[in-house]
Design a protein around this nucleic acid. Structure first.
Lengths: 138, 138, 138, 138
DNA sequence: TTTT
DNA sequence: TTTT
């Protein structure tokens, strides 16, 4: 088991690459913040923010491209991956990424205009705010 | 592994029992709500609320007694337990409970007056809004 | 959030219903066991087993029908649902179910003969032991 | 929320530092392995192992020092932390660590002799294989 | 009713 | 019985 669950906010506009029509990859810089607290001795521990490198593949990458924007609050589930890469100068770098398997948008955008091409009809079914498995409404 | 994670709201004031000075047990009726959504065919699936029976023991029960109130939003982690009990009429019942191992209060109560008896001193360290393991602030 | 994660064993053969060609539902009786331990005072707390009612829908129900059997070890993720139903005698009952959104088979069945009709060819791609989201092997 | 759950194996003997009698920190190199699988097109995706830097504080660090060894299988829960540090040559490095809040030992060591110095008494209550919250055995 |  |  290698499982990560995060609730946080998107730091800037997602970056999406298409390797072919089907193979989309989206990268999202994502902040989680741990609230500060006061120690028994009165010392104040400040808030702490971590910046995660989220990576979305295939269908999720397309959902990100369509609906996710800077500032949005998300719940994501995935796995930690550690990777080496060489930059243009041939320097080797470590990078830690979260491969996202599941996402839920927590920013409600009820009367939201769609990002790129606005839907003409107002009867359009609401934008998919959830990409989790949805099952029979028993 | 038998793990439950919930974010939701307290439905009524917690009920706390002391078996002796140390053995406190708190019971909390707790609602989680799954947002409705629109199916591909246009059908609307409404919001769905589940009511959980949370059970807190020992130190956590005391934190609940002190700080948790009707309407509060909580994050809880625990385990599912199924139990049989006989009511006063001798009738047997099934009950499902969530034994809580970890709790975090999500309702900020910054300028909160303490629940029953307000603390005299204003220099009191802030009420514990978190009961998770807190470690060295590296 | 209403999230459940279980690792345990299937107690008897799954029961599968088809409402139509697509709408399959599988029910699985599922045991999780919490290891006993010794208290500080030397008292022994025995092992404790909980029996969960798992419910699988659609594609997952079909995977269950094909591959899951009595005794198998599974990892499942899902949500808790509380439901009322009336039995044939018109008596009302509470039932707690785990709606499964994600499953992973932990019982390796490497040289396994397929459950009902064994595949003739040995070059058959291995049976799906995982039904989680699988992404690009970056 | 910044939550990590891992099941895997300890790669080498833990390294423990004491800053003072109470402030212990343990570091553990920890491997999680994702099973390979066969793609629809017959291509084989091999097993994939990730090496995590686990960090344990205070009481957990002492449990690690006493009971955790190379090869042991563990379940850990914690948070991801990204940190910069300068090495002895003054070079800046990124490091990703998992701050562990909760641990469970999955390697059973029933008749285990204690690691370094064996306890004198054989009536010693069994070694703590679990450091999770344990509650009233209702 | 299961399993380690 | 709660809340967003």
């Amino acid at each position: 088991m290698n499982k990560v669950m995060l609730i946080g906010n998107v730091g800037k506009e997602p970056v999406v690459h298409y390797y072919d029509a089907d193979q989309a990859v989206a990268q999202v810089s994502f902040a989680t913040t741990e609230k500060g607290y006061t120690l028994a001795n009165g010392m104040q521990v400040p808030d702490h923010t971590d910046w995660h490198n989220l990576v979305f593949f295939r269908g999720l990458a397309k959902v990100v491209e369509k609906y996710v924007h800077k500032g949005d609050r998300l719940y994501v589930e995935g796995r930690i991956r550690y990777r080496l890469y060489d930059d243009k100068q041939g320097k080797r770098h470590n990078i830690t990424e979260i491969y996202v398997d599941n996402m839920e948008m927590l920013t409600s955008r009820s009367g939201a205009s769609a990002p790129t091409s606005a839907p003409a009809s107002s009867s359009t079914p609401s934008p998919a705010e959830t990409t989790e498995n949805k099952d029979l409404p028993f």
